[in-house]
């Protein structure tokens, strides 16, 4: 019984993680940037969502407005800051996004992020769903469904739209993509924007579960990093599988050994995995 309940909770965590890591994978695929500021954007989304709901905006609207706002901030960040180091060595992009993480965290602290803010679960989604003796809060089911739906929508969009075609082309070979006339600057602006919006969307959606404060995104960022490494850096389907693997490992670890040890367990699993399969589940991750 406990195991089944843990499986369900693992799937919930995995879904949130999936939505969050997709942005990380996307920005890595096109820009070859490991975005350390992704967790700060998660926190920004969560805090914006809580603030909107607290000032009377319905939850459903906040779920759209906060990601769009953070997405626009993402575009602004790319245009103003990330664009400055496009052709610099890889080290600079790592340092830059790390600095951005500090900067955004600092700003969030000043905007009231020092205190933990609670986001009430919207009334429609309150209550508990019981299934054969196992009960799961309705809201968790909603979050999983939402995350899975958004993920599928994004993948379909990547497969079927002009924008998706450009993203995939730039992902496979940025230089060749530029040669056949893909405007790398504009594409990158949009990719960073979408990636930031996805981080914020998972932040708002998870706020009733994880609460909201300036560093709420720290832990999920580490989990997402584990996810993209397990799945292979830049591999989309790898990230999908890995997100659920990480979610399950973490929830089972928490269930049987307690919260902090679970993180250690995950780290050991990832390290063990790297010895033999440094390119992730599908062997298509980049190593550079």
């Amino acid at each position: 019984m406990l195991a089944l309940s843990l499986v369900l909770n693992g799937i919930v965590l995995g879904s949130v993680l999936l939505l969050f890591s997709l942005g990380l994978t996307l920005i890595y695929g096109v820009g070859r940037i490991v975005n350390f500021a992704h967790g700060a954007l998660f926190s920004a989304g969560a805090m914006a969502g809580v603030w909107l709901v607290a000032s009377g905006v319905p939850f459903g609207v906040a779920l759209v407005v906060a990601p769009v706002a953070v997405g626009l901030i993402g575009v602004l960040i790319d245009w103003a800051i990330l664009a400055r180091i496009r052709d610099r060595p890889m080290v600079d992009s790592l340092l830059l996004t790390f600095g951005l993480a500090l900067l955004i965290t600092g700003i969030l602290y000043e905007l009231g992020g020092r205190n933990v803010q609670i986001m009430p679960v919207p009334q429609v989604l309150g209550g508990v769903i019981s299934l054969g003796g196992i009960s799961l809060p309705t809201y968790r089911v909603f979050v999983s469904v939402l995350a899975i739906a958004l993920t599928i929508a994004l993948i379909l969009f990547l497969k079927n739209s002009k924008w998706g075609l450009r993203v995939r082309a730039a992902n496979d070979d940025p230089e060749m993509g530029a040669c056949i006339g893909i405007d790398r600057e504009r594409l990158m602006h949009s990719v960073v924007g979408v990636s930031a919006a996805l981080a914020a969307a998972s932040g708002v959606a998870a706020a009733p579960i994880f609460t909201a404060h300036a560093v709420v995104g720290d832990k999920i960022l580490i989990l997402a990093f584990m996810t993209v490494i397990l799945g292979g850096l830049g591999s989309l389907r790898g990230a999908v599988v890995a997100a659920y693997a990480v979610g399950l490992i973490l929830v089972f670890g928490e269930g049987y050994f307690g919260g902090q040890l679970a993180l250690m367990l995950l780290f050991i699993v990832v390290m063990a995995m790297l010895i033999n399969w440094p390119r992730g589940f599908f062997g298509e991750g980049r190593t550079e």
Binding site: V34, F36, M90, V91, L94, F225, V270, M271, L274
Partner: peptide, 11 residues
């Protein structure tokens, strides 16, 4: 290499 190392050190 590079990025994976950076991520793992943070972890």
């Amino acid at each position: 290499v590079g990025k994976t190392f950076a991520i793992l050190t943070l972890a």
